[in-house]
Design a binder for these strands. Sequence first.
DNA 1: CGACTAGTTGAGTAAGCTCAAAGCCCGTGG
DNA 2: CCACGGGCTTTGAGCTTACTCAACTAGTCG
Lengths: 245, 245
Amino acid sequence: MDVLTRKLESFCPFDQQDRDLLASVVAESWEIGPDQDIIQEGETPEDVHLITSGFACRYKLLADGSRQIFAFLVPGDFCDLHVFILNQMDHSIGTLSRCTVVNIPRDRVIRLTEHPAIARALWWVTLVDEGTLREWLVNMGRRQAPERLGHFLCEILTRLNVVGLVTDNAFDFPVTQSELGDTMGLSAVHINRALQTLRSQNLIAFSRGRLTGLDLERLLAFSGFESNYLHLEPYRLKHQRPKLA
Amino acid sequence: MDVLTRKLESFCPFDQQDRDLLASVVAESWEIGPDQDIIQEGETPEDVHLITSGFACRYKLLADGSRQIFAFLVPGDFCDLHVFILNQMDHSIGTLSRCTVVNIPRDRVIRLTEHPAIARALWWVTLVDEGTLREWLVNMGRRQAPERLGHFLCEILTRLNVVGLVTDNAFDFPVTQSELGDTMGLSAVHINRALQTLRSQNLIAFSRGRLTGLDLERLLAFSGFESNYLHLEPYRLKHQRPKLA
DNA sequence: CGACTAGTTGAGTAAGCTCAAAGCCCGTGG
DNA sequence: CCACGGGCTTTGAGCTTACTCAACTAGTCG
């Protein structure tokens, strides 16, 4: 099953007609290399973009040249579902690794929303994105470096698990420490030290672009991670690896 | 005109029928004192709540007892428009000052959304809330205390101006430094020092619950504030105090 | 006037930053 | 197969920002 359907079904199950429709949407895709912009601040994209492989991020550049990343986009995530209302992007979206992207024309999305189950699921992803931003704000405001980084990794692990990209608590994560720094509001050097803290406690292993959770139970507790903000519904939690819930 | 209509019309103008409908919604309201919860994490509210006077905030409490505030709710703001999709609140909403609140039953909101202009406007407020969270994340991650606080004050000034609560760059702001600390991810003591920095540069005056912007031009520049994330449409900007845009 | 809350100040501490120098990994070309 | 180069990671040292704790001051309300 494709990543989009997998993700949306973590909210509610679809009937076969809806599944076929969703599958048809992700038919045509294109590739983009690492460190490229998919959309830039100020643009008004024609199509809605969907990531089907690789990692991308939402970010803004500041006047002093620093960058803040405030969302990670993983396979199954939409870039710009809000384009129907807001006329301009207020942030940019760039790739972190090589990515596969699907362009969905506006009218195609509108046709999708005529199916009530799909419309609700799209509404749901928007609200979960918002809940995730709130949790990130808590993370930035109230947790120090090692816990903050741990919390972020718990989230990524949970989200990748939903789309089937986690095996034995490990996943490909081709992201530099500098990019993690831009994400967590920390310097790259300090990310390095926070990673060492997590490693020394045997919570994670991370090298050569692959991350392994060594003791999820303790990692979740250490980071104060509660997955409720991701609003994974009981449906999914009961049927798929509840240990990450 | 009521604050809700004022706010929604900063996105697009309505016809008289829509205005009457909106005005009828805010007919009945109730009062709640300061430091009270309007909704708590885990609840499933029956009605949608709208603030029509006073200040409230979205927040989460952490295990160590600390609090992170990640949204300020000002008159015209909805508390829980997302309740139709997400079954549980993933955060709480509490008052900062005495507030006036309107309860709008679910089916009333559904009837509102049958009017296309209003439905689009409600969609818009949701997306602006999300854009605001993104900007807050940038603020937390990349700006230090005085600029961070200044940026936040610029935003509040802009948003209160939209609903007509700013006169001569001044507005009532009955918020403690401790609450500002919980908002900015800083200690109350450090908020005090950041305020002194802003005051010493003659950017603001703030005492007895009233805040005055002394030199908006310089305050915006100092804080790196760009209002684009609030997505105020040209309609409003041309007709109301463009200096804050 | 007294008590309470919020704001202010000072001093010492801790978290995180910058800069700079190694070290490691991996791809490329001889 | 090895040498080289480039990007990323790691380490150390000194500095800055922000924190905590504690004392003190200024309003406010009974």
